[in-house]
Design a protein around this nucleic acid. Structure first.
Lengths: 192, 192
DNA sequence: GTCTATAGCGCGATAGAC
DNA sequence: GTCTATCGCGCTATAGAC
């Protein structure tokens, strides 16, 4: 079927709007116009805005984790895994007319607007990604494609921070090209 | 005098609130309660919210640039300059009960809520900081405290991205301690 | 320069018909 | 499941007294 579930279409629109404008910069009215149904119909699927944000976070986190797992378990060098991982973030920035950012990066900025459940999901996103990056780095240390690191966990936290911050900086100024440059520099520093 | 200009007190309160909640998470009502004067009085000093945001960005950018200039021109090693620079961001996170982030990092996230003048100020912040980091790196390459880099500009962009992203990631999960770890790892990678 | 009062609008959310 | 209609609230902003 070419048709998509209404709930899914709402989440798609919400994700796109939040990635470019933020949680508090997006309204049910915006969603209504984007999806093509009325505000009340959105409330039927997601009674409150917090309900919607939590559903969105859950979907994003699971999709992202699965995609990254596929990379981690692929039969390529650790360095190649890391490159593909960075390309995931790169894709976020390139999609759409104005620069978008990682959904979780945006939600961390506006974390004060989330409930406890949302904050926990954000923390799990950070935790999961950090562990997955650690796996990639250890893989690269084992096959010799990445330089030996004292603390893979500290490196992983740095990688995640650089990618999240890189999306922000790049979308304000230099665009995808600047993000590429940052990623290349990061990989280069981890190779020597 | 222990008393402070009202305009300054408003900007102080606005900066604090925006650094923790974001542009769209802060209202004139919040400011009113924080400063201790009525909403209408805030409007007397800053007619529109965009006026206030622009004044705030201008002040922040100039103050920050001056502080960094003092570091760049100090008679210490390039590596020490970079460490002090990172400590500026570190200070932001540590101040206040809940984790705050760089004012410009937050505003980049919500850049869709700024006018053209505000966007330009953000870009200048990024440009200025990048140039200043380049100066620190070149200083460190000259005195041998930092490893030789092919492209100091690409490294500088990576440093800024890592610090901005590090503030975000750290305030969602590990706090100042995690930010320290990221900074140490960054310096370590630039030293070898 | 600060106040009270209020305009005007958009927001999240709900009731009830179809 | 989608609609029309509406509620109640908080927002930015303004008018005018003191």
């Amino acid at each position: 079927m070419g048709t998509t579930d209404t709930k899914t279409r709402i989440l798609d629109a919400a994700q796109c709007l939040i990635q470019s404008r933020g949680i508090n910069g997006m309204s049910y009215q915006d969603l209504s116009e984007s999806v093509g149904i009325r505000k009340a119909s959105i409330h039927h699927h997601f009674p409150s805005k917090l309900d919607m944000l939590n559903a969105l976070l859950q979907r994003y986190q699971h999709e992202f984790a699965d995609t990254v797992d596929a990379i981690v378990q692929s039969k390529i060098t650790g360095k190649s895994k890391l490159k593909r991982y960075c390309a995931l973030f790169q894709g976020t920035l390139a999609t759409g007319e104005d620069g978008k950012t990682c959904l979780c990066g945006m939600m961390i900025a506006e974390i004060a607007s989330l409930d406890d459940s949302g904050v926990q999901k954000i923390r799990q996103f950070v935790r999961t990604n950090t562990q997955q990056i650690v796996a990639m780095i250890e893989s690269g240390m084992a096959d010799g494609s990445l330089a030996t690191q004292k603390s893979p966990k500290a490196v992983a936290e740095l990688v995640l921070a650089t990618l999240e911050g890189g999306l922000m900086v790049a979308r304000s100024s230099g665009g995808p090209q600047q993000f590429d440059s940052i990623v290349n520099q990061l990989i280069s520093l981890l190779t020597r």
